[in-house]
């Protein structure tokens, strides 16, 4: 599904990612771990098409298409979802209406008719029930005044509505208390199936207690220095990042 080949990338001419290759198949969960400044978030930004980040060489193929040539909007419509570390607040725009716009953009792309607010409300209520989310997520404005945990839950709600093929969750666990972490993780687990894939970008292993990865990659100084199974995360937890970064 996703093929990253010798990717070099950065921001404002500073190279942060220095040659990453990664292959992800449908149904898989990959965890990308690493210390601060290792390039984890830059990888997420590059995958989502953030305009401030540029790939300098290498290739990313998504379902065989050259991802680096696609705008953020096209990437989303092609089935990529980015769960932001710091979702932006948009006062004045109702959350439910925002979700409907996003949902309708997909329908239009698929040549279907746009869904009206009433029918969408039904769909939204159903998704929210599955995720155990309260009604306030419909009524409030997009992330406006949301707590850190509420913002992350709202990201998962968007993921549920958009049904992406590949989701990249950037530090979704940061700033969450244990209850919020559980709700978010359970949500993510419910949205999993054999046709979609997940990249979890995280500093800590605790998220991986809730969402079990098939593969763990350790990033250091812009490169993958170690890859392994779930056990690798536990080893990191007990021995610290120095264990892999200095061994390199």
């Amino acid at each position: 599904m996703l093929e990253i080949k010798d990717l070099h990338a950065g921001v404002d001419g500073n190279e942060i990612i220095k040659g990453i290759s990664l292959s992800i198949k449908k149904g898989e969960i990959h965890a990308v771990m690493g210390p601060n400044g290792s390039g984890k978030s830059t990888l997420a930004k590059i995958l989502s098409g953030h305009p401030s980040y540029q790939a300098t060489s290498g290739e990313i193929l998504f379902d065989g298409k050259n991802l680096l040539e696609m705008e953020a909007e096209e990437r989303s419509l092609a089935g990529i979802f980015m769960g932001f570390q710091y979702p932006v607040e948009v006062p004045g725009v109702n959350n439910a209406e925002f979700l409907r716009m996003a949902h309708n953009a997909r329908r239009v792309k698929a040549g279907e008719e746009e869904i009206d607010p009433l029918d969408f409300d039904e769909l939204l209520s159903e998704k929210m029930k599955t995720l155990g989310m309260e009604n306030k997520y419909k009524e409030r404005n997009l992330n406006d005044g949301f707590s850190g945990g509420e913002k992350k839950k709202n990201e998962i709600l968007q993921m549920a509505i958009l049904e992406p093929k590949l989701s990249i969750l950037d530090e979704t666990d940061s700033g969450l208390d244990i209850d919020a972490l559980r709700v978010v993780s359970e949500g993510v687990n419910k949205l999993r199936n054999e046709n979609n894939a997940l990249i979890l970008i995280t500093h800590y292993q605790r998220l991986l207690d809730y969402i079990k990865p098939d593969f763990v990659h350790v990033l250091s100084n812009g490169k993958i220095v170690k890859s392994g199974g779930k056990g690798l995360a536990l080893e990191l937890e007990s021995q610290g990042y120095d264990w892999v970064t200095t061994a390199n």
């Binding site: 953020a72 948009v90 996003a102 792309k109």
Partner: peptide, 15 residues
């Protein structure tokens, strides 16, 4: 802000 617009775009919503 540009960040707000990017947020919409990353959800498939046109600029």
């Amino acid at each position: 802000s540009e960040e707000q617009l990017f947020y919409f775009e990353s959800r498939g919503i046109s600029r």
